[in-house]
């Protein structure tokens, strides 16, 4: 049973590193969603300057690797450190991986989510928007009662997928940013343990299990929210069970 004991001990070792990945995902997803809503509305705006800016932002951050984005933002922060952050005494925040990590992830997820929400925005039935206008609703009321509910229902499955991709992207943070002291995420821990005893199969499969488990939790939570969003549809039909529903394209 020694094998099983090593295995359980290994799983326990990864609990603290996993918190860092969860922190990065949780810190960036809500902010990214809010900004993505603005960017999506901006890309759909009539003003050509606003819509081109938003479209350009989305294209740039979807068209380049996150790995490069991390390096780019970190080196920009480094270059600004002697000019801005040190005189303003902000170095402790601006140079902290726990801040830069979510910052870059927010930019990245804003672009991907923005594209998803923009796509959903375009499929909102025109007639419903016109009906709301005809009732004399203000633009904000139209958005709140017609556009938003339609949009979020269409976008949710794709957004689930994006959340999973973003969680997996958190594995890249500490490959690019400095590891300070004991702040190690799952991949760091796996590499550290591997360099100690060269047992690649054990360490990497346990790391993979942690990612898999948290991915399943994301699917579960987002599936529940999707059920709630769609609760007015098909009341008689049996509720869909929890499904590991991978979508392959981000």
């Amino acid at each position: 049973m020694a094998v099983l004991e090593t295995f359980w001990a290994e799983i326990a070792t990864f609990a603290r590193p996993a918190l860092f990945n969860i922190y990065f995902a949780l810190a960036s997803l809500p902010v990214g969603f809010g900004l993505a809503l603005l960017v999506a509305l901006g890309k759909n705006a009539k003003n050509p300057i606003v819509s081109h800016l938003c479209a350009g932002f989305i294209y740039a951050f979807r068209g380049s690797p996150l790995f490069i984005q991390f390096f780019m933002f970190y080196s920009i922060m480094l270059a600004l450190n002697p000019v801005w952050w040190r005189p303003m005494e902000l170095s402790w925040l601006m140079m902290n991986p726990l801040f830069i990590g979510p910052l870059v992830l927010v930019f990245n997820t804003t672009a991907y989510t923005g594209e998803i929400l923009y796509g959903a925005l375009r499929t909102v039935p025109r007639g419903e928007v016109e009906a709301a206008r005809a009732f004399g609703m203000s633009p904000f009321q139209v958005f709140r009662t017609v556009t938003w509910p339609n949009m979020i229902r269409i976008a949710w499955p794709a957004y689930t997928n994006e959340a999973v991709f973003l969680f997996h992207a958190t594995a890249l943070v500490y490959f690019t940013l400095p590891v300070i002291g004991d702040q190690k995420d799952i991949m760091n821990k796996a590499r550290e343990l591997f360099e100690r005893d060269y047992n690649a199969v054990l360490h990497f499969s346990v790391a993979a299990l942690w990612f898999l488990a948290i991915t399943l939790v994301i699917f579960l939570v987002f599936g529940r929210i999707h059920e709630r969003l769609m609760r007015h549809m098909n009341i008689e039909a049996p509720k869909p069970k929890l499904r590991f529903g991978p979508k392959y394209i981000r």
């Binding site: 594995a171 991949m187 796996a190 990497f204 990612f211 991915t215 392959y248």
Partner: peptide
């Protein structure tokens, strides 16, 4: 590949 990040495979396969 949908449950596990690609970086992990990317490091694991060559090592293995």
């Amino acid at each position: 590949v949908r449950g596990i990040p690609d970086v992990l495979f990317f490091l694991f396969f060559p090592l293995a």
